[in-house]
Design a protein around this nucleic acid. Structure first.
Length: 501
RNA sequence: UCCUCGGUAGCUCAGUGGCAGAGCAAUCGGCUGUUAACCGAUCGGUCGUUGGUUCGAAUCCAACCCGGGGAGCCA
């Protein structure tokens, strides 16, 4: 154990020298008197070549016996080789097995989501999951960087709370020394108290929602970042949210190119967003856009595009199916793979074709005063190539603490919708700072003023205009990584029907 | 809670009323540059569960269980 270990991500700096590696067998191939080991050590993956004629009998026997995820120590020479992934490989001089593994369940082949989720503790070792966790780390670091460099103080708010902050959502109930308590769905109200102490604060912690949601955007336990700023109005709030998202994306693009390429993320949309101003529209304008001829036409065109794509795919499938009969074995496999891809894509298109008319109907029939549904958000964001910030919502559909405009009909709230159909990643508002108004709002909502007494104190003692927002970490990770479901953005997701591992 | 699709070998799937199948994994053998290596052989089954229809059910019907996708709600 006293040998100096070299980590795989540093190997490029050690070409033509001998190093010691320790790690796990990601995959292994053998070819007579050569064994190719793909070794991962947490920092990366490196192909290690064992040549029968250049190692001891013990090392050779060990190499031949290796199976996936066996833990090993390697000593060898680092060489540049274009045939190897990453351009560097290790020519092994000796190999020790720490533990020989048999029947590791996750093979390099395809697996279903249920199988993988049941083995999440092992799945985390796979390349894609590894990349996602690293990008998540990068996003977290970028968020702290952004706020810390602007003088924000990170504060922590309680997880046990005596009541719901916003009447509507379902919370997890627990027993707190024989008293009913709930797991926090937001730290916002406490954040406001801390902002009155420190001016600029943010929280970064877990939140819990007991809704029985089964969609790609929901978790029961997720992490949220909630800045709260004294002397900020809605516009300043929106500026801050835009700067923050740009800063996060820029930092991830700069530091995580390898991970994003492992995830096959097309980064053009992310790169564009860093440079361009976000779209800012008011709720009324969004409704107008949703119900417009332009939107209807765009959706019709989308249907035509999908139909055309299906025709092209079907033609390709016919052509390669004909070729299949007389093809060589390797080509047959290639064709079979391609046909599976084509079938999946066609299934996806058929679902789109079933859905788009519904989207169109939902958009066309949208009536002022309701909240946007998932498809409405998608239809809105499809028309822009940067995030869309929707502000000035009908006051009735927003929470009691949001400040209203002069006409008392609009809440000074803002939702930030991510591009590419990722939906709402930020929700925020300017808060109501007037004592009388907030008291009457609490009454109107039928909430118990006694429960909010400490919160109301914030309006009694030095009340000032202030604002804040919440950023959903998992949705942000899903969007930046280009993942179709938030369950892969957190190490051990908690969602309806999933509490283990 | 509702809508919708699915559950067949360790994994991914094919099989729509008549002998339970393929690829991968596993096991054994071969191969000196492999890239989800390849080639040959072997092994592998409570067809989600229970009941029904039928000469005969993986296949048809009913109920239930589990999972995927979506709605509502939201980050």
């Amino acid at each position: 154990m006293n040998k100096q270990l070299t980590y795989i991500h540093q190997l490029k700096n050690h070409i033509a020298t001998d190093v010691d590696l320790a790690g796990w067998v990601y995959n292994v191939r053998s070819s007579g008197s050569l064994v190719f080991i793909e070794c991962r050590d947490g920092s990366g993956i490196c192909q290690c070549v064992v040549n029968k004629e250049e190692v001891s009998v013990e090392s050779w026997d060990a190499a031949v016996s290796l199976k996936q995820e066996s833990s090993i120590r390697l000593h060898g020479l680092v060489v540049a080789d274009e045939r190897s992934l990453g351009g560097v490989e290790l020519q092994v001089k000796s190999l020790d097995v720490i533990q020989l593994v048999t029947e590791y369940p996750i093979t390099p082949k395809e697996h279903g989501i249920e199988f993988l989720m049941n083995r999440r503790h092992l799945w985390l070792r796979s390349q894609r999951q590894w990349a996602v966790m690293r990008v998540r780390n990068g996003i977290i670091f970028a968020i702290h960087n952004f706020f810390q460099s602007r003088g924000f103080i990170q504060t922590d708010t309680p997880i046990f709370t005596p009541n719901a902050a916003e009447g509507s959502t379902t919370l997890f109930e627990t027993d707190f020394f024989d008293e009913k308590a709930y797991l926090a769905q937001t730290g916002q109200l406490y954040g406001e108290a801390l902002a009155m102490a420190h001016g600029l604060i943010y929280t970064f912690g877990p939140t819990f929602r007991a809704e029985k949601s089964k969609t790609r955007r929901h978790l029961s336990e997720f992490w949220m970042i909630e800045p709260e700023m004294a002397f900020y109005d809605l516009d300043m709030n929106m500026d801050l949210a835009e700067d923050m998202l740009k800063s996060i994306v820029a930092e991830v693009l700069k530091k995580y190119t390898h991970e994003l390429s492992l995830l096959e993320r097309d980064t053009s949309s992310l790169e564009r967003l860093v440079e361009k101003a976000f779209v800012r529209i008011k709720y009324d304008e969004a409704v107008e856009l949703l119900t417009s001829e332009k939107t209807a036409k765009m959706l019709d065109e989308l249907v035509q595009q999908r139909v055309l794509e299906t025709q092209e795919l079907t033609q390709e499938q016919d052509a390669i199916e004909k070729e299949h009969g007389s093809a060589k074995k390797w080509r047959k496999k290639q064709i079979e793979k391609r046909i599976i891809d084509i079938k999946n894509r066609i299934d996806q298109i058929e679902e789109d074709l079933r859905n788009i008319p519904k989207w169109k109907q939902s958009a066309q029939e949208f009536s002022w005063g309701s909240d946007f549904g998932g498809s409405d958000e998608t239809v809105l964001t499809m028309q822009f190539d940067v995030p869309v910030m929707v502000s000035h919502w009908p006051a009735e559909i927003k929470a009691f603490y949001m400040k209203r405009d002069e006409t008392d009909t609009y809440a000074l709230g803002v939702d930030v919708l991510a591009p590419e159909g990722y939906g709402e990643i930020v929700g925020g508002s300017q808060r109501e700072d007037n004592l009388e108004v907030i008291l009457s709002r609490i009454e109107e909502e039928g909430l118990d003023p006694e429960v909010f007494d400490w919160y109301i104190d914030l309006r009694r003692f030095g009340s000032v205009p202030h604002a804040g927002f919440g950023l959903g970490l998992e949705r942000t990770v899903a969007w930046i990584c280009g993942l179709s479901h938030v369950r892969e953005t957190i190490a051990f997701p908690r969602m309806m029907g999933r509490i283990t591992p």
